[in-house]
Design a protein around this nucleic acid. Structure first.
Lengths: 202, 202
DNA sequence: GGCTCAGTCTACCGCTCGGTACAGAACGTG
DNA sequence: CACGTTCTGTACCGAGCGGTAGACTGAGCC
């Protein structure tokens, strides 16, 4: 495994981040266990020894690809949490998630779920990695909504943790729907309904 | 493949429905691709030739096990739709789902999702089977809520299809959470929030 | 008891899996 | 230009996969 650009030797013929994106797409589409090394290498445009020299193992490749997925895709939804009110933050989070889950430039749905909710015992680390990623997003939601609660910006009788879990669960459900072919409009109509729960009752 | 009890020959040493339940549990815990034949046969207490003589192939076994899962588990949530009002039906559906997803007598979560959201290309039929099962449940929800709409039993501006999708998506998200270890109480608190969206605004 | 016939058991099949050895190719440096 | 170093390509490894052949077992029937 080389870090940075080595001073000497034959130069690498591929861009590390670019091939990670291709790898993420294969994992996204077929899941960890459904993504064979042949499928991965051919999508990444490199061959096995290069893959192993660079990333170490299939699992480590997955971990790197998932990290990059988080930086590039999940970060978009997380950015929504900067809105000034809880309602606006939740709306922006759900809407941008729904958009991302159905965007045409990558597989439908979400790598955090398609990657491998359930795996064989020897790949259980993969499910854990994904669960940890989802938990990090939920924890960002909790943090934002806890602030909202302190600001009196949450509906009566609504707890920040529970609301975060609700929002996260809905978004995960949308991912399942998207993977099965639901359209952007389908998901946005579901978001419309969810937002009724977040609005302060008049 | 034998149907019914044959008049002659050595009698089968296992109960077909019982071993299907054990198989469903393995698929549920490890997913279709993560469930090896060795794991299946040892959990079912039969060996390969018996499995193949009875069920035909791993995929057909999965199909039978999933059908039985639907009859025994999903049916519980679907029964909730008989309640007299849309609100009561949705509440009962979400509450009994949340209970089922976290019941201790079987793996956490839902086979319809853990079974294999994303599979390798040669197992894509499995994802389709699961998606069809989920769609059937959603369609039962649509039917119930369409009736509610005709009875004036739906909040203003809420469409039956969208509400069904919202309810179904939330329940699927709860399944993802349950698979990662969420408790019954965690999910019920999320249901509390969801129900605010279904209540008629006063 | 001998016969038929379905079910079970051990042992094996070809194949693909994740992972690697090793030779050759492309660079910077003396 | 030869050298050390690093990456690439082919060809391969043992292991486990899903699936099966064929001998054996145990029930009903005459």
């Amino acid at each position: 495994m080389s870090t940075g650009a080595p001073a000497t030797g034959r130069p690498r013929a591929f861009d590390e981040e670019a091939v990670l994106d291709r790898a993420a797409e294969v994992f996204w589409r077929h899941g960890y266990e459904g993504a064979s090394l042949s499928a991965l290498t051919s999508a990444m445009g490199i061959n096995r020894p290069s893959l192993y020299a660079t990333f170490g193992s299939k699992e480590q490749l997955f971990q790197r690809a998932f990290a990059r997925y988080h930086e590039t895709q999940v970060a978009l939804a997380r950015a929504a949490l900067d809105r000034p009110t809880a309602y606006a933050a939740v709306e922006a989070f759900l809407r941008s998630s729904a958009d991302g889950l159905t965007a045409g430039d990558h597989p439908a749905g979400c790598l955090s779920i398609q990657g491998g909710l359930a795996c064989s015992p020897e790949n259980s680390r993969v499910s854990e990695i994904l669960a940890t990623g989802r938990a990090a997003t939920e924890s960002a939601l909790v943090q934002r909504l806890t602030r909202a609660a302190e600001e009196g910006d949450l509906p009566d009788g609504v707890d920040a943790r529970a609301l975060a879990r609700f929002v996260m669960a809905l978004s995960e459900g949308h991912a399942v729907h998207a993977a099965a072919g639901a359209s952007r409009e389908d998901l946005q109509a579901s978001v419309d309904i969810a937002l009724r729960a977040v609005a302060l009752h008049p």
